[in-house]
Computed example of a mutant assay.
Amino acid sequence: MILDVQDIHAFYGKSHILQGVSLTIREGETVTLLGRNGAGKSTTLKSIAGVVAPQRGTVKFKGVEVGTWASHRIAAAGVCFVPEHRGVFRLLSVEENLKLGARRDSPWQLTDIYRIFPRLKERRSNGGGQLSGGEQQMLAIGRALMNHPRLLMLDEPVEGLAPVIVEEIVAQLKQIRQAGIAILLVEQNLEVCTQLADRHIIIEQGRIVYEGDNAAFARDDAIKDRYLGVGVA
């Protein structure tokens, strides 16, 4: 078990957002966290990454309790979080952005990133602000890889992107998965989710309400309709 989250509660001010969330991820597994807007998906990722400190519960990474750690320490341990806004430095070049995340002990170096993301190699001298949305997403993922992740957490990586770019990013995530990195994915595009994930977890109003493997989820139209608002024709 690489990640073991038990009964975490998180607040924004007085708003009780996460109300006892528990989930686990095994080594090399890809898991999606699904739910409607405002259900608590992003807050769950932020709580695991230390961006939002859980008020109750435990977050164990590789058997070590990290729920009270600062976010930079959690990242250094191998939990790499790519937020929805991507965090690309617009005035730095692609290569400078990548080198910001570089660690000498990472199996992912510049040549590896450019192999998986050939668009980034083509644009390595371009500023981050000159990239398209899809290229910025690739850059954010590539920078996270250079930080030597054992667990890669992605928040809405293909939101608003053209279908051809979505296909490209899905193919790249499959390569990352094949390298043995565990992935926790928040994503609204169910086709993307079922292409990538071993398991699916649904959160509703700050609580986990469903968990199932990919095959069970794919055939359970009632669950998708009830919790995700996906109408079945």
Rank of each mutant, 00 (worst) to 15 (best):
L3K: 00
L3E: 02
D7M: 02
H9A: 00
Y12P: 00
Y12Q: 02
I17S: 02
L18D: 05
V21D: 11
R26S: 14
E29S: 11
E29N: 13
E29A: 13
E29D: 15
T32N: 13
R36M: 03
N37P: 06
N37L: 03
A39S: 15
K41P: 11
K41L: 08
S42M: 13
S42D: 02
T43C: 06
A49H: 07
A49M: 08
V52K: 05
P54Y: 09
T58N: 09
V64H: 13
V64F: 07
E65L: 08
E65D: 14
E65N: 12
V66P: 05
V66D: 06
W69A: 06
W69T: 03
A70C: 00
R73A: 10
R73G: 07
I74T: 09
A75Y: 13
A75W: 08
A76K: 14
A76E: 11
F81V: 05
E84S: 10
R86A: 03
G87N: 08
V88M: 08
F89H: 08
R90M: 09
R90V: 12
R90P: 04
V94G: 04
N97G: 02
N97C: 06
L98Y: 04
L100E: 09
L100N: 08
G101L: 05
A102L: 15
R103P: 15
S106T: 10
S106N: 04
P107H: 02
P107Q: 07
W108G: 00
W108K: 00
L110G: 00
Y114D: 03
R115C: 00
F117I: 02
P118W: 15
P118K: 15
K121T: 03
E122Y: 02
R123L: 13
R124E: 11
S125N: 11
S125L: 10
G127Q: 15
G128D: 11
L131E: 01
G133A: 07
Q136V: 07
Q137F: 01
L139V: 01
I141R: 09
G142Q: 09
G142H: 04
L145A: 12
M146H: 04
M146K: 01
M146A: 05
N147K: 15
N147F: 06
H148N: 15
L152Q: 11
D155T: 09
E156W: 07
P157M: 12
P157A: 13
V158A: 15
E159L: 10
G160V: 04
A162H: 13
P163C: 11
P163N: 05
P163R: 10
V164H: 13
V166N: 08
V170G: 03
A171D: 15
Q172L: 00
Q175I: 14
Q178R: 10
G180S: 03
I181C: 06
A182C: 05
I183L: 12
L184P: 04
L185H: 07
Q188S: 07
N189V: 07
N189E: 10
E191A: 11
C193I: 12
T194H: 03
L196K: 03
A197R: 04
H200R: 01
I202Q: 02
I203E: 09
R207T: 14
I208W: 07
V209L: 06
V209A: 08
G212Y: 11
D213G: 14
D213Q: 08
D213S: 10
A215R: 14
F217I: 06
A218T: 15
R219S: 14
D221K: 00
I223M: 00
I223C: 00
I223S: 00
R226E: 15
R226Y: 02
Y227H: 11
Y227M: 07
G229R: 04
G231I: 12
V232S: 03
V232M: 03
